[in-house]
Design a protein around this nucleic acid. Structure first.
Lengths: 191, 191
DNA sequence: ACCTGAACACCGTTCAAGT
DNA sequence: ACCTGAACACCGTTCAAGT
């Protein structure tokens, strides 16, 4: 099942021509490489690094946001999947804290992703990236409220928007300290 | 004393030529007009609407952010100044809530301002816009903690970063509801 | 001292032409 | 079916030339 951000009929990857498959991989690799160094690289720069024409880039990812989402889709999914082992290893509230901390570390590294996640709510590009995060968060919140550690009926969307503050701290030592304090404040509000 | 975002020696407004003074006002008026409709208007569009060359725009405001900060400087200052009457009219915690609510309403209207405020922390453009907000918030927090309504030693910068979530909600009915919930969560965390 | 606006080096995106 | 890359309509910013 090929990933389809919108409702469009997307061919199965196997049905694509081999050069198209190769280009797609090259684009993702180039984008990953360049974006991790500098979140503002141009689409043309990505196309160039990938060794394809700009038209090809846009044939695969019809917008910048779509490229970013696709790029981090797997990583995000993997982080979402850590919920189980966290819940097994520690009590729910601690799991929630660790999971949110790691999400922040992660989105601070992948610069563009944070805002893409927040904006995903508005733009209904939901299914691939936003929804897994919400689902994972939802499970953590339920576990914690079942254990009586936080209030019930707390919406995951609200928490995600709040922790957005964590990836807006400056990228230095003081910023990391601040992120800790912010998470303390947020979690205290949930109790 | 002329507003000086950086350390540069800025002439007293009176020492500027009359046409320069007029242009500055025209630029601010045009920017206010266009930015309130659409936060992404180009600098050239602002210059054109103001009836000046683009070079003139950059002579007065050497960067886009500087223009935005200057633009809302007075409004922000006025909102910061409401702290006194709020503290007189109601108990500290309620005052804090109302003030933050209004700040959110305000920054949701003036689209660009919210992020400019948050980024101001990094970029040390502090004195004119960021600092008054921090000072006002600081007084509200102190009043509330003196009254035993919130914890002591809560940093205004942390609260400002958290309430940043409030101006990232979608601009519709559901978004307003969400903003209320978010403020509840934040304030609960301070207690 | 200040203004003008053409010009520069970009940007994201498109599309005719090729294979 | 897919790719290429010149071209388009922008962008923020600069700077020689004017007053």
């Amino acid at each position: 099942m090929s990933s389809t951000l919108r409702g469009e009929k997307t061919l199965n990857p196997k049905d694509q021509r081999v050069d198209a498959q190769h280009n797609r991989v090259a684009i993702l690799a180039a984008a990953h490489d360049l974006l991790s160094k500098n979140e503002t690289v141009s689409m043309n720069a990505i196309a160039k690094k990938a060794g394809v024409g700009s038209g090809t880039l846009y044939r695969h990812f019809s917008t910048r946001e779509e490229l970013i989402l696709e790029l981090y889709c797997h990583d995000v999914q993997r982080h979402a999947d850590t919920v189980d082992q966290l819940l097994q290893a520690m009590e729910p509230l601690a799991a929630l804290r660790v999971w949110l901390e790691q999400l922040a570390v992660y989105t601070r590294m992948k610069h563009g992703l944070g805002d893409a996640l927040t904006k995903a709510a508005e733009r209904k590009v939901v299914q691939v990236t936003y929804q897994p995060v919400i689902d994972a968060l939802s499970r953590l919140l339920k576990a914690a409220s079942d254990a009586g550690q936080i209030q019930p009926n707390i919406l995951p969307d609200d928490v995600l928007l709040l922790v957005g503050a964590l990836w807006r701290v400056p990228r230095d030592q003081a910023g990391l300290k601040q992120a800790e304090r912010l998470l303390d404040l947020i979690l205290r509000g949930l109790c």
